[in-house]
């Protein structure tokens, strides 16, 4: 199987590898996939007060396509608002990396990871707000 240059580049030189402090209220964490299925992605976003993704980090257990897909989305989400980031489609990821058909599920997982991270950020923000309301 011949992989695309883009895919190999992301696999060999993954961008934005790392972790951010999970507890912080401006961090959203998405953890998707399952070890038993052979892929797990952890995607984290750091969101500014005006809803812009300032930073993104990932760690992935999986095949080269899974690693490349998650590396790519960390690049894509940076600088976007959370609403813009939520519109990233797996088909865009698959196209950019020229994923072979058997690897499409890796791009689906990457899309799920973004959505999960945004969801996590939003629910944290909601509880933080509630906390504030109660204090007032």
């Amino acid at each position: 199987m011949a992989y695309s240059k883009e895919l190999i580049d992301h696999y060999e030189n993954p961008r934005n590898v790392g972790s951010m402090e999970d507890g912080a209220s401006d961090i959203g964490t998405g953890l998707v996939g399952a070890p038993a299925c052979g892929d797990v992605m952890k995607l984290q976003i750091k969101v500014s007060a005006d809803g812009i993704i300032e930073d993104a980090k990932f760690k992935t257990f999986g095949c080269g396509s899974a690693i490349a897909s998650s590396s790519l989305v960390t690049e894509w989400v940076k600088g976007k608002t959370i609403d813009e980031a939520a519109t990233i489609k797996n088909t865009d990821i698959a196209e950019e990396l020229a994923l072979p058909p058997v690897k499409i599920h890796c791009s689906v997982l990457a899309e799920d990871a973004i959505k999960a991270a945004i969801q996590d950020y939003k629910s944290k923000a909601a509880t933080a707000n509630k906390g504030q309301d109660a204090a007032e």
Binding site: G33, A34, A36, C37, T60, F61
Partner: peptide, 24 residues
């Protein structure tokens, strides 16, 4: 392993079986 979230969890002493994974 430096890229692996599972390695991180193992290093932090988290049992990966204790996490509720969404099997797909």
């Amino acid at each position: 392993r430096e890229l692996s979230p599972l390695w991180d969890m193992a290093q932090a002493g988290i049992d990966i079986k204790s996490i509720k994974w969404a099997e797909h």
